[in-house]
Each structure stands twice: as structure tokens, then as C-alpha cells.
Nucleic acid binder design. Structure first.
Lengths: 100, 100
DNA sequence: TTGACAAATCGAACTTTATCGATTTATAAT
DNA sequence: ATTATAAATCGATAAAGTTCGATTTGTCAA
């Protein structure tokens, strides 16, 4: 994914908010039975709830962030869990420092 | 300036292009009589010309980047010279690496 | 003090993004 | 198979961004 799409994905308050929440999932989301918030991620329903927006919007925003490569998805059963791609984020910071 | 506006300012191909050109002004812009491209910056006319867009658009884009804090302006006579704010850019990279 | 030129701003047309409700798809349980 | 629930996608409308041409403002030279 190119940097333009990464920056576009970051040009939205709600998407930045999601990224921030996912930095410390345990602090922002209740536990899900049998899944490790940190290792697996947070499901769309939980993010939808905190976002105070519709499920549709939450899903799209997560998709946008994923297409930008900033978060990763894992589907388990009916749920899709999203977590940050810390390496990608670090690389973006590095890129900005050295090449932007 | 907040990070949202910074990311918005970077969400545009032409603005990213300007930022890239300003990394090495001597490589991308002809000399201006009596002004140091690196120390002072590049004037709007020169950027307009390379952008292949109108003066109006170039001026707005430079203003956008300036408001985001990524470039700085110096007016000398009739000309306004723009140069990158390297420190701000570095700080942005750092911010992304450590806090995004 | 008028003319010329650089830059900034304004107003408008067009494109893209934001956000919703409704529908569809995927999965699991009955 | 049918139902229930999570997530994704679709279609629509409102808001924001893009980009232009025209105008205005700032600055210098004649």
C-alpha cells in the first residue's frame, strides 16, 4: 500500500481513535470469552459500541485501516478481530523521519 | 497544530510532491538571483511552474502545508519563499513511532 | 502615484469522503 | 434446513476536499 492511502486512512478522527484504543485493548474493551485481546485483537461489535457509530461505519473504517496496512484482521467463528500492525506503524514513523 | 490536520495535509499527491521537491531544492528548481534555495526556500512561482497547476492552487497547497506546520514561509520583497520544517517532520515521525 | 508582478483570497463546479439504514454473506447453534 | 448473530457490502445523502478562473492585496520600480 502506498503512503498516500496510509495518510488518507489517518485523516479521520474516528479512525485515529480506533488506532489509539487498539494500543491498549484491555484498557478500552471488556474481555471476550476465550480470546486474548492483545494477541488476537478486538472484534467489530466492541469497536462499534465504543465508536458510537453504526456497525456499517465501524466495519468500513476497520477495512480502510486494514487496506492501509495499519491493522490486521483475524476471523474466528462469527467474529473478526482486529489488532494493530505495530511493525507497519513503526515503519511508517521511520519512513517519515528519513524519507518524507 | 494537531495531528489530524497534519495527516490531512499529507493526503494529497500534489502536496506530497511539493514536500519531496523541497527536500532537495537545488535538484528540482532553477536558481533565483541572490537567494539561497536551501536556506531561504523556493518561491511560489517556481513551485507553480513545476506543479503544472494554477498559481491559485499552488498557493493554497503551500498554505495548507504551512498551517500543518510542515513548511515555513519567508517573504522577501514580492516573493514568498517556502522551505521544509525539518524538525517538525522529524517530530512527526517520532510521534508516529512512539505514540500513534 | 501608477503600473507591473507575486502571492493570497474568493466563489463556484466537480470529486471524494463520511455516514447512515438496508441488505447480503458467513458462521454457528438448534 | 432454519434461525440467529457478526460482519461486510450496497445505495443514498450530506459534508469536505480539489481545482480552477477572477479578483484583491502587497511590494517594488518608474
Amino acid at each position: 500500500m502506498d503512503k498516500l492511502n496510509i495518510f488518507k486512512s489517518l485523516s479521520n478522527e474516528a479512525r485515529l481513535q480506533i488506532l489509539e484504543w487498539l494500543k491498549d485493548p484491555a484498557a478500552h474493551f471488556g474481555p471476550q470469552d476465550g480470546i486474548d485481546l492483545i494477541e488476537v485483537g478486538v472484534c467489530v461489535s466492541q469497536i462499534t459500541e465504543k465508536l458510537n457509530m453504526t456497525q456499517s461505519t465501524a466495519s468500513q473504517y476497520l477495512s480502510t485501516l486494514q487496506k492501509a496496512g495499519l491493522i490486521k484482521a483475524t476471523r474466528i467463528g462469527k467474529w473478526t478481530y482486529y489488532k494493530r500492525d505495530e511493525e507497519a506503524i513503526k515503519n511508517l514513523g521511520l519512513y517519515i523521519q528519513t524519507d518524507l
